[in-house]
Design a protein around this nucleic acid. Structure first.
Lengths: 119, 119
DNA sequence: TCCTTAGTTCAAAAGTTATTGAACAATTGG
DNA sequence: CCAATTGTTCAATAACTTTTGAACTAAGGA
């Protein structure tokens, strides 16, 4: 298994926007952004969707260039590709996250009790 | 016919992102942004899609709160809801447009010869 | 009034994306 | 080695979105 990622200049704006337009994936990205530096694994998001469905959404995020996933043992360490996104689309990620935090229709992140942060 | 628009605070981030994630609609928005202040009508976008399909995409943009459409005679005057979007999601529209302008995979706007600007 | 222009609506078809469960692979710990 | 854990793949289905053409409405001009 290769876990393919696009290079920075292969990241496409319409694809990134469409990928972030899904509430489940937006929630994942917000959570990653709120824990930047801390590598997450897939099971951290099991409150958002089933295991298979998460695998699907995380693959979409990875293939769009929004996240990076590296295999470590039987886990995947998932991180936001913030540097690449900022380089390619300056200000976009920040404004999306700011907008999400300010949208009362979206759930707050970082305060969700049922997501356990790894020690 | 009522041409319904969401109020500013009804504008939803995931919906806006999903709506902008379609290349045809992104092209419309970029064009509107490049001609800000100039009201466009639907036929200005006929190079992007068929008349019916345009009607569909323009309705999506309007329903998402990205554009405003007012009926004037038999035309619709279409404008970007920049103030509302900036109020609701600061920096988002600018970074999307900047990103689009910098994405070599997307066509340039404002130079398209087959879109005629009304006198 | 009749014709044209501008755009919408509707129903159907085509295409795409999301969700599911069962089966699978790979690593780790006992 | 065996079992548990972590996540993927596959095929099916469900749900949605996009595109189309034909029929329509509404305004404006001749």
């Amino acid at each position: 298994m290769t876990l393919p990622h696009p290079t920075t200049d292969q990241i496409s704006l319409p694809i990134v926007l469409a990928v972030l337009g899904d509430p489940t994936r937006l929630a994942i990205v917000r959570y990653l952004a709120s824990k930047e530096g801390v590598a997450m694994n897939c099971s951290q998001f099991l409150d958002l969707a089933s295991k298979t469905n998460l695998s699907y959404h995380l693959a979409k995020l990875r293939e769009a260039g929004v996240t990076r996933a590296e295999a470590v043992g039987t886990s995947r360490l998932i991180t936001l590709r913030r540097d690449d996104l900022d380089k390619r689309f300056p200000g976009l990620l920040d404004s999306v996250i700011l907008a999400a935090d300010g949208d009362p229709a979206l759930p707050a992140v970082g305060t969700t009790a049922d997501i356990e942060v790894q020690a």
